[in-house]
Write a protein that binds this DNA or RNA. Structure first.
Lengths: 199, 199, 199, 199
DNA sequence: AAATAACCGAGACGGTACGTCAAGTCTTGAG
DNA sequence: CTCAAGACTTGACGTACCGTCTCGGTTATTT
């Protein structure tokens, strides 16, 4: 410890960037295999072919690791929606949304609950990630609609982002029911369209 | 599937009912003190004045114990709502609902995610408990309204039960924002009332 | 209460003698199967088809139970020995003795060590049993010899009882070698005969 | 594979030798305090100032731990014996031998019986230790005697090693009697000297 | 014949130790 | 200064057995 001024003069051996990626992808693999609370740092390190301290040098604990893995996922871009047909656009979006949540978020939710109580900063970070994803996925269906002259209530996109993910997550995790086509049509026809369309 | 005969001949020393209660109440105590994932069976046993095997004889693990403790809580009855005023009734109910979720469900959610992956039966059990509570709390606000002549869409209660808890849980846990008065008024005025009132 | 003279008026139901035997034989079985320290009261009770308190009503613990089981064994009578031939008599006896120790005592020795330190009374009891057995087995070879005119040192039987079992046990348990024919002949020819014969 | 001679490339952090010693000495301490079957791994770990897994990383169980502790003892060298006087030499040696067995082997015998059934390799190991000690202690008394011209039977040392420890152990553990001076003189005068002296 | 008292199987109980597992830190030797 | 490997402390895990007790029920003697 002889010099504190230089921000990062890269003294000694620099970190291997390949390890960063290997760790994150190993985390995602283990996460989907055994779930979040069964995930162990040892397993991640072994899967990534790195030592345990190499993981701890990057992340302070399991929660931060899972958060970083969530961040690392390929950015999820919602499918293009047909302009002019609000119902079809909403249906396409919620269908894709339900698939994403069902497939990928399952392990993440546990990590979120686990880590949030012990580390508020981490909680904020994970919320930021989730919000970014939701924002991306809720802009799409209204892009073409506005041009088409369909009349929507003010703040329709925000309302959609507030309700659609909530109802889908709640159905999957608390009701334990699948988000199949009939349910998604019910969601669009009985909830979203009545709410978002200008009355 | 009912059996007309005695379900169990009650061989051997019967379990001490006092211990059942002591264990469950100790669980609730520890749960609220340290949270769900920090809860240890040893702590529960010590708090209940009971040996560890006495806990394990009743529940196979932490998740089942927390589930049983949730079941054991005094049944939560929503407050009476003013007849005739749908908006006031909804506001009263969502306010109480938000309070319940914020205060009590905190530990349960973690347990739910913890146990769901390993034991589908346990997951079903916890969902049953949550649904029972939600059912009780969504019947109330529509009791007096129907008589009052206010016109509601068909299946209004089910729609309320589908949306209100979902949005509240999502806001608390994923957005990390409090369910304060302005939010609840927004929920009632901008989401629930437009949806439930006959258009 | 009209008669106080009988030491045990046997009020109430008397103990089932069949259980006594079942317990002891189950003890011997378990003892030879898993050894002494792996023996559990539960296993003995289960094997005997009785409840645990039925065992504890008779014996205060594992050590006493094993001691009683040792006592219960069929009294071991050494084989008849040829009169007049001291060497043959000794060889016959040590051969039988080695067989007894190798087959039966293995589990008992552990019990002896286990129980002796905690309960001096039990230790005395077990020593009494062992001594009784040894006494019986060391009288035989000298019965016919005395009449035959062969000259022995005074206290030959005691000397035999002091040395022969000691050397056999030591070889089996500490050296871990079998007491085969060559060893036994060595024991007789190089140790016992030179010692016992009047010089 | 460039070097076949190094037995282990010593990857990772090597074991702390200080812990090895601390564990063994703590084992000996606990052993002499509470005996062998009352010895618990937790107690040893606590006494050594060491975590339980640190003990289990080195030894698979209680028996192996006790065996290693026996091995670790300072090598026990018998006292020097007077040359030329066989009786005095034998008496000195058996006296010391009886003291050693009475004081130190107490815990070991239990461990031996405990571990022998489950792990034949361990049993062999303990026998090796015991034999090594016995070998050391039986060489001494005959060192000076041979020069002195006293005539001994061939294989006198082996005979001594075969009989003396056996009789002493048997008296201590099975007869439950102390190895006091009269007994030791009896052992030397009535057993050892008649056997070992050339007739 | 009825009452009494000890017996019985089963098994719950508090307790103690077991042996395992994971978390997060520290230490080595190599690069 | 980083890396892989792995030893380290800590602490909870879930299990096994201990010896005791409590239950419902049985069996003999005593009244």
């Amino acid at each position: 410890m002889q010099d504190g001024r230089t921000p990062a003069p890269a003294r000694g051996r620099p970190r291997d960037t390949g390890r960063d990626i290997a760790i994150l992808e190993a985390t995602l693999l283990v996460l989907t295999e055994v779930g979040c609370d069964q995930l162990t740092i040892d397993a991640v390190a072994a899967r990534a072919g790195v030592g345990k301290p190499t993981v701890y040098r990057r992340y302070p604990g399991k929660a931060a690791l899972v958060a970083a893995a969530a961040e690392h996922r390929a950015p999820r871009t919602p499918p293009a929606t047909p302009s002019g047909d609000l119902r079809a656009a909403l249906l396409t979006t919620v269908q894709w949304l339900a698939g994403q949540i069902a497939e990928q978020e399952i392990g993440l939710l546990g990590a979120l609950f686990t880590g949030m109580r012990n580390d508020p900063g981490l909680a904020a970070e994970m919320r930021r990630i989730l919000r970014r994803d939701e924002a991306a996925m809720t802009e799409e269906p209204f892009r073409g609609v506005i041009e088409s002259g369909e009349r929507l209530v003010p703040g329709a996109a925000a309302l959609f982002a507030e309700i659609a993910p909530a109802v889908i997550v709640h159905r999957l995790n608390f009701a334990g029911l699948p988000c199949d086509r009939p349910f998604l049509e019910h969601l669009v026809d009985d909830v979203l369209l009545p709410l978002l369309r200008r009355r």
